[in-house]
């Protein structure tokens, strides 16, 4: 049996409907209408110990709700979940010892306390021995630079610092499986890299990871499996490499040149690519191509032969683009769609 098993997981919410404006509020006084929204509809999922799974989809697709169902925070309308044999929402306390959770949008630090105090409270809740606690803090300091954050009151942390501290909170008790809901949201590149490095290390240590994100970079090095959800349903479940090979092949190289060129000159040189001129006319260009047919290196080398290259920026497709393509059915998902 897999570490995590979810079968036909469904969650619907009931929300009151209100017409806009004063009249709407007044009408709502006497007559209430409700609408039912299915946030998650019949999700099947099975995660083996040691796997790292990326769980992606557009905003409102049901990602966070799924995570909350899997962690036992909300009770499913129907369907079932088991983690290590436990039903999360029925055995919250026992289950909480084997899972770690992070919601990027929300901190679990005590707002008015120094980070050290929050961690100490969690230490007591998880019954960690002083030695174990010290060892964990040391480990987190190495990757997350935790030491400098320990004396700081949570409300004075920057977003990036907060996320580092929250990661430590989520992983303090060495959970078997960790759920990370947008762990890099709003972070700058430096912190993002740090978080990603931390994820790689977790993965190497054998922790099972389930990760939601909008940033393909987060999952590239960590996750070998990707589950795509939209409208509350799983629309793809399979290998990440396959998805990337098929749907995330487009690259865009933005160039700023020291000398002037024309679109035709460049287009002639790279017949496989699409060349467009930028804002600065003949000194700025964007070259879009399929990475199976051309490489960024080849583009740079080719351009360098005819002009001086001042600035280079390379864009990879965002996970949303991939999801959009998959959803739009631009390319069929025959293989790999059933795990």
């Amino acid at each position: 049996m897999a570490l995590l098993e979810a079968h036909d997981l469904t969650k619907t919410f009931r929300r009151p409907e209100k017409d806009p404006g004063l009249r709407g509020s007044f009408k709502h006084l006497f007559q209430r209408k409700y609408s039912t929204k299915t946030a998650v509809g019949g999700v099947d999922l099975s995660i083996e110990a040691g796997e790292a799974v990326a769980y992606v989809g557009p905003n409102g697709a049901g990602k966070s709700t799924t995570i909350k169902l899997l962690t036992g925070i909300v009770e499913p309308t129907s369907g079932e979940v088991r983690i290590g044999g436990l039903v999360p929402h029925r055995n919250r306390v026992a289950n909480s010892r084997q899972i770690g959770v992070l919601f990027g949008q929300r901190t679990q630090l005590w707002w008015d306390l120094p980070v050290r105090e929050s961690l100490a409270l969690l230490r007591d809740m998880y019954d960690l021995s002083p030695d174990r606690f010290r060892a964990q803090l040391k480990r987190f300091d190495e990757v997350l630079g935790l030491d400098e954050l320990l004396p700081v009151v949570a409300r004075k942390l920057s977003l990036g610092q907060r996320m580092r501290a929250d990661l430590a909170c989520a992983l303090l008790h060495d959970p078997r499986i960790v759920f990370l809901d947008e762990p890099t949201i709003g972070l700058d590149i430096a912190v993002k890299d740090r978080v990603r490095e931390f994820l790689r290390q977790l993965k190497a240590e054998g922790t099972t990871i389930m990760l939601t994100t909008h940033d393909l970079g987060d999952i590239e090095d960590t996750c070998e499996r990707i589950v795509i959800i939209d409208g509350g349903r799983v629309i793809y479940d399979g290998s990440l490499a396959q998805v990337k090979d098929r749907y995330a092949r487009e690259r865009r190289v933005h160039l700023q040149l020291g000398s002037e060129l024309t679109v035709t000159e460049l287009a002639d040189r790279f017949p496989q690519a699409t060349v467009t001129a930028g804002a600065e006319g003949r000194r700025e260009f964007t070259i879009a191509f399929d990475k199976a047919e051309l490489t960024a290196g080849a583009v740079l080398a080719g351009v360098a032969q005819i002009a001086e290259v001042l600035e280079v920026k390379i864009d990879e497709p965002a996970i949303e683009d991939v999801v959009r393509k998959v959803y739009a059915g631009e390319l069929l998902l025959a293989e790999g769609s059933t795990p």
């Binding site: 962690t71 036992g72 925070i73 909480s96 959770v101 929300r106 809740m125 998880y126």
Partner: peptide
């Protein structure tokens, strides 16, 4: 949310 994922 977090309170529900802690062993207390």
């Amino acid at each position: 949310d977090y309170a529900l994922t802690r062993p207390a």
